[in-house]
C-alpha cells in the first residue's frame, strides 16, 4: 500500500526505523498491509510461526507470556520484530487487542528478500533492531540484579542452614 508522507514522517521517529529517509521508509513499507483487529481478538499467539512484524497505528495491545502480563503497547509501538532477525522462529509471546487496534503488517518473507538484496533501508532497520535489543538486554540484566538483591534476606537463612549441614557432616 502507499503510505501518506505525513505518516512516514512519524514512522521514522520510531526507534527501529530511525535514520531512514522518507523515500527509504516508503520503500520499506511498500508491502505493508493495514489491518484492523477488534478488541479482545488475538494478533498472534506464543508458539505461532513468526511471519510478520506489526506497527500499531492506534489502539492498545496487551503482550503476555505464559499468562504473565509483559507490556501494554500503544501507538507507534512495534510488535513481532524478532522475526526480522530470526525468520521461522515461533512467537515468544502472545499479543491481544486491548482496544480496537489499527496496525501495519509487514510480512517477514518480504523483509528477508530485501535483506538478501542488500536493501539499505532494511539493513538500517536491522541495525536499529540490534541496538534496541542491546538496550533490552541491559534492562533485563538490571532487573535480574535487582531481583537477586531482593533475595538477600533469604541468603542469611541459607547460611545458617549451610552451617547446620556442615555440623551434620562433621557428626558430633
Amino acid at each position: 500500500m502507499s503510505i501518506p508522507a505525513s505518516l512516514l514522517k512519524k514512522l521514522v521517529q520510531i526507534p527501529i526505523f530511525q535514520g531512514l529517509t522518507v523515500p527509504e521508509a516508503a520503500e520499506f513499507f511498500e508491502v505493508a498491509l493495514e489491518q484492523v483487529i477488534e478488541k479482545g481478538r488475538t494478533v498472534f499467539r506464543e508458539g505461532d510461526e513468526g511471519d510478520a512484524l506489526y506497527v500499531i497505528l492506534s489502539g492498545e495491545a496487551l503482550v503476555t507470556k505464559k499468562g504473565v502480563e509483559l507490556a501494554v503497547l500503544s501507538t507507534h509501538a512495534v510488535l513481532g520484530e524478532m522475526c526480522l532477525v530470526s525468520p521461522g522462529d515461533t512467537r515468544s509471546a502472545t499479543a491481544v487487542a486491548k482496544t480496537e487496534l489499527s496496525m501495519l503488517k509487514i510480512p517477514s518473507r518480504r523483509v528477508q528478500k530485501l535483506i538478501r538484496g542488500n536493501n539499505l533501508a532494511t539493513l538500517k532497520v536491522v541495525a536499529n533492531l540490534a541496538q534496541v535489543m542491546g538496550q533490552r538486554l541491559a534492562a533485563i540484566n538490571d532487573r535480574l540484579v535487582a531481583a537477586d538483591s531482593k533475595k538477600k534476606p533469604d541468603a542469611r537463612k541459607e547460611e545458617l542452614a549451610d552451617f547446620a549441614g556442615i555440623l551434620n557432616r562433621w557428626s558430633f
Binding site: L160, F163, A164, I166, L167, W170, F172
Partner: peptide, 17 residues
C-alpha cells in the same frame, strides 16, 4: 576446637539467631 564449635554451633542453629 572442632568439637566445641560443633556443640556451640548446634545449639546456635537449634535456637535460631
Amino acid at each position: 576446637y572442632v568439637l566445641a564449635i560443633g556443640r556451640v554451633g548446634k545449639a546456635t542453629v537449634l535456637r535460631g539467631i
